[in-house]
Design a protein around this nucleic acid. Structure first.
Length: 430
RNA sequence: GGCAAGUUACCCAAGUGGCCAAAGGGAUCUGACUGUAAAUCAGCCGUCUUAGACUUCGCAGGUUCGAAUCCUGCACUUGCCA
């Protein structure tokens, strides 16, 4: 779906390593000089892993996918690993132990993630994407073989120094042996891919650095070879809040989990202070264009040209140009200050299809509709929102907690429900 | 296996018999201001149809007119000892 063929690296850079650095994608790495030389040379094989901890990838994973794609565009050969086995274990988070998912669930999610990863990388040519699954080489591994052949290479002293592990050891939560072992499994992945595919580079989030180095260390000990790792930065917002969350929920790549409309809106609402960094990381726009947009943010911030470019680029990348056009049209129709009744009914209707929506009789109380469309999570919250003046039907503020849609239905048989300034939903009146 | 400490709402965290739907902080949400921004200020912030009622303080019992607070058992977490 994404227009892979139209993507390219910026040829104003000497090599892909320079470009990755300019884009801010290299937070930590193994020997930088060696990596630069390696990446400027003949094609190498590299990999990045994704664990099935949810039915979809999210924006944090997108950073990895785009990093992989840039390396692929430079001629290198990507291996996409979906962690059928590591997903069963769970990598240690600094805060709390994970709840294990069932084997069936993980297997199902592996399928979804493989399909998603495949969409972002080219499957053509000498350096086509190849998918691998670490369950293939761990499922048949006995506990004894694991402990003898792999475990001997790992030192407890090193293992407990890893950030995620030591954070947990120092917390009230502690850490289970299961999660403690995660780094061994990931190290094993790298070793296996080195042996099977000559893989010499792993990319991942810098929060995974401990797991990345566990692989390079293992290969060094087992094969007496130095291989590489690149840790991409953890994306943060300048105001200190977590990136990639909207109303506390993750932004997913799967359209049924985060609608293309919400996805576009997320990017459009990017803070001025962050937008240029986002353009570098999440788009294929070149240095010259991004510098121009930076100038636009400085001189005409109210036009939000950079935000529009960012929202367009990323939404088109993930959901396709066509879907992006339609969510932009939807936003233009719905965000309007103006009178919704004068808009074209067909266009308005298709716009509402992009939003959370529900079908109800006109006599349904607005508070109930808020609940039905997911704009609120309880009836009390809905009443409160109305009392605070935060609910609108067709851009007209709802004054009464007992209001219904009577008399407010637009030609075509629907109504636009809005909470706050920008949270919208549609109601189709039956 | 023994001893000790702990488990409070989305997160952190007060609260040791009634004044507790539960202090305070953060996050989310709403309003004002704006550029569908940031910062700032204000409000809301368990559920239910307001007053009011109901459910909640790891789980299950018990004491009491009354329990997040006391007792018993269980589960889980952490530390020390073996």
């Amino acid at each position: 779906m994404p227009a892979l063929s139209s993507q390219s690296n910026d040829d104003s850079f000497d090599d892909v390593w320079e470009e990755l650095n300019w884009r801010g994608l290299v937070h930590v790495s193994t020997d930088a000089a060696a990596l630069k030389e390696l990446l400027a040379g003949p094609p190498i094989t590299f990999y990045c892993g994704f664990d099935p901890t949810a039915p979809s990838l999210h924006l944090g994973n997108l950073v990895q996918l785009l990093t992989m794609r840039r390396l692929q565009l430079a001629g290198h050969r990507p291996l996409g690993l979906v962690g059928g086995s590591t997903g069963l274990i769970g990598d240690p988070r600094p805060t709390a132990e994970r709840v294990l998912n069932t084997r069936d669930t993980v297997a199902e999610w592996v399928g979804y993630l493989q399909a998603q990863v495949s969409r972002f990388l080219s499957g053509d040519g000498d350096n086509a994407l190849r998918m691998v699954n670490n369950l293939d080489w761990t499922a048949g591994l006995s506990a004894i073989d694991f402990l003898r052949d792999i475990g001997k290479y790992f030192r407890i002293g090193t293992m407990i120094k890893k950030d995620a592990v030591s954070a947990r050891l120092n917390s009230a939560e502690g850490i289970s042996y299961t999660e403690f072992s995660y780094q061994v499994l990931q190290g094993l992945d790298y070793l296996q891919l080195y042996r099977d595919h000559g893989c010499v580079l792993q990319t991942g989030g810098s929060d995974q650095w401990g797991n990345l180095t566990s692989g390079t260390d293992l290969i060094h000990k087992a094969e007496r070879v130095s291989v590489h790792a690149i840790g991409t930065p953890l994306i943060t917002n300048s105001d200190g809040t977590k990136f990639g969350k909207s109303e506390g929920n993750a932004i997913w790549l799967e359209p049924s989990m985060t609608s293309p409309y919400a996805f576009y809106q997320f990017w459009l609402n990017t803070d001025d202070a962050d937008v240029i960094f986002r353009l570098r990381i999440f788009t294929f726009l070149g240095r010259a264009e991004i510098d121009r947009l930076a100038e636009a943010v400085a001189t005409e911030p109210f036009k939000r040209e950079a935000q529009r470019a960012l929202a367009w680029e990323v939404t088109a990348l993930v959901h396709g140009a066509e879907a992006t056009e339609s969510v932009i049209a939807a936003a233009a129709a719905l965000f309007g200050q103006g009178d919704l009744a004068v808009l074209d009914a067909g266009m308005l209707e298709s716009a509402l299809r992009e939003l959370p929506n529900t079908t109800s009789p006109a006599s349904t109380p607005v508070a109930q509709l808020l609940l039905d469309t997911g704009l609120t999570t309880s009836a009390g919250e809905g009443r409160r929102a109305i009392a605070q003046g935060g609910v609108y039907v067709n851009n007209t503020r709802v004054e009464s907690e007992t209001a219904t849609l009577e008399g407010a239905v637009l030609p075509g048989g629907f109504a636009v429900l809005r909470r706050g300034k920008k949270t919208l939903a549609g109601v189709f009146v039956e």
